[in-house]
């Protein structure tokens, strides 16, 4: 049952609350990119992916699969997985604690449902996603493999190796996404690497490229529909999400300073007030 944009908005707000509460409870983690991807991942898991948490296996047979290449975005990833039914929402409280299944970066070692592959060392997830897409082609499955990268992460050369491979092997069942928030740990992307126009670069690499607003559900749903229409084209699709780091909380929005730092207690209180409560309730 597809969620309305209003319902998605409610879930995304709860996801942002989860993100901030998780990093504050753990006194560590990466809220910035998590906030910028919250709307997109909510829409992906609740309205787009063909998946079933109840029958999930790491092999992903007959299901859509998702790889978080930018592994530091675990707060949003875990919150969305829990809210989508992969594991109890209460488990979010264990984020980054000793013995947790919710490791600082995604791990497959503790059997957390929903996680297909370890990530965290940047630039590698798109290759794994390409491998999954290739396997689905071999097995004649028509599911989609999804992957989320960061724009800072795209400074890694391996991203572009994977980009070349996916075109060469005609992986039109691969939909990659980049959280194009323009920020990375040390500052604005343009001041750290001069990465430039990702749209022009991915087009030059031979991908179908879609650029969309990452914080407007109408835009998000349209981009997803357009991306899925690429099936059968013989070409992989890249959605570049124009997003804002820290989106949803005024003092966090648009600055790299919240990439990997955690609000103080009074800041958390302020942030949660800005976001507002939802009927879903905190974990």
């Amino acid at each position: 049952m597809a969620k309305s944009n209003k319902e998605l908005q409610t879930i995304a707000t709860q996801v942002r609350r989860d993100i901030l509460r998780m990093v504050c409870m753990a006194s560590s983690g990466h809220p910035g990119g998590s906030m910028s991807s919250a709307d997109v991942l909510t829409a992906l898991y609740f309205n787009q992916m063909k998946q079933d948490p109840a029958t999930w296996t790491r092999g992903g047979k007959g299901q859509d699969m998702f790889i978080l290449s930018a592994g530091h975005m675990t707060p949003v990833y875990y919150s969305v997985l829990a809210r989508a039914g992969y594991f109890p929402v209460s488990e979010l409280a264990s984020f980054r604690q000793m013995g947790t299944r919710l490791q600082g970066h995604p791990s497959v070692r503790k059997g957390l449902p929903g996680v297909f592959q370890a990530s965290g060392s940047l630039g590698q997830g798109l290759s794994a996603a390409a491998g999954l897409a290739l396997a689905k082609k071999l097995d004649k499955e028509d599911n989609i493999v999804w992957c989320l990268c960061g724009d800072g992460e795209s400074e890694e050369g391996q991203i572009w190796e994977a980009g070349m491979f996916a075109v060469f092997h005609k992986l039109d069942n691969l939909i990659a996404m980049t959280d194009w928030n323009g920020k990375q740990i040390d500052g604005p992307v343009e001041e750290v690497s001069g990465e430039g126009d990702l749209a022009a670069k991915w087009e030059a690499w031979g991908w179908r490229v879609i650029v969309a607003d990452a914080h407007d559900f109408e835009s998000i749903e349209k981009a997803f529909a357009l991306a899925k229409a690429g099936k059968g084209s013989g070409v992989p699709t890249m959605i570049l999400w124009k997003s804002e780091m820290g989106h949803g909380v005024d003092f966090m929005a648009g600055t790299h300073k919240w990439h990997g730092s955690v609000p103080k207690p009074e800041q958390l209180e302020d942030a949660l007030k800005q976001l507002g409560e939802t009927p879903l309730g905190d974990f």
């Binding site: 092999g59 290759s127 491998g131 396997a135 070349m164 491979f165 060469f168």
Partner: peptide
């Protein structure tokens, strides 16, 4: 059989994906 070009890093990741899916 998959030719990866001179891009070993990507080859490792692609292989991992294939293995996750049962290859």
């Amino acid at each position: 059989f998959f030719q990866c070009g001179i891009a070993e890093a990507n080859m490792v990741g692609v292989a991992a994906g294939l293995a996750i899916a049962g290859k």
